[in-house]
Amino acid sequence: MVLPRFLKRTPLHVAVIVIVALWSLPTTGLLISSFRPQNDVVTSGWWTVVEHPFEGSNWTIKNYSRVLESDGLWRALANSVVVTLPATIIPITIAAFAAYAFAWMKFPGRRMLFGGVVMLLVVPIQMTLVPLLRMYSGLNLSGTYVGTWLAHATFGLPLAVYLLYNYISSLPSEIMESAYLDGASHYDIFRRLVLPLSAPALASFAIFQFLWVWNDLLVSLVFLGTDSEVATLTATLNELVGSKGEKWHILTAGAFVSMAVPVGVFLGMQRFFVRGMLAGSVKG
């Protein structure tokens, strides 16, 4: 009886394997090519490695040392870290305070202000670029990390406030009230109760914002530029496509360097990511 059931499910399994293979094929090709010698990459398809997979001369890590050192990807990696970490932490902190105020403090104009913040979710970044760039050159902020953090922080804020409000406002009110009656201030309640209890929501927004900022090209092109002193990985990779478009040993390794961190973070924290996505997330 085992065999018929197994046979009946075979088409399903074949379909699943085909889909998974199809989806992974592009990335696999890139990964394999990035470890092949310069000449091999441009003369034969990456799939030909299956003929002699264990031959040492078919593999090299030179491409990586090349892109990291001579093509400046170490610096770009550092720049991406400098841009991404504050651009993730700043909006979360600011949004958490705002969400707490909206959820647990009473003040005139509360509903209107909150509605206004949520409404800003519909504004695309493009709506701000021309004037922001003008303001930035007046304020000496263009081409600086600080200017880029502020832009990223602002663009992430509406979603952050919205998501964190949904979570923080659903925390049980008894805990807050008893802490308040015990003489705890709002600041203490926020720091000692609300923040730890909201850890899952904070983590999922943090991952979103992290991936968003790390993978962004538009904001970093406009506000930071392509000067190698400050350019992020995405901007640098885009430059490589322009200047070394046919040197596939460089491009494949470069693309992989730019993907390594977000893919690692993503695989490590998939649980929070999925939870955040299910909580609803769209970005302006």
């Binding site: 990335t27 090209l217 993907m259 973070v265 998939q270």
Partner: peptide
Amino acid sequence: AKTFIFLPLAISMVGASVIWRFV
């Protein structure tokens, strides 16, 4: 199986562009 379909979400559009430029 889902992880494989899901993984491109972590890849930047620039990275994806390079991947597919090669394809």
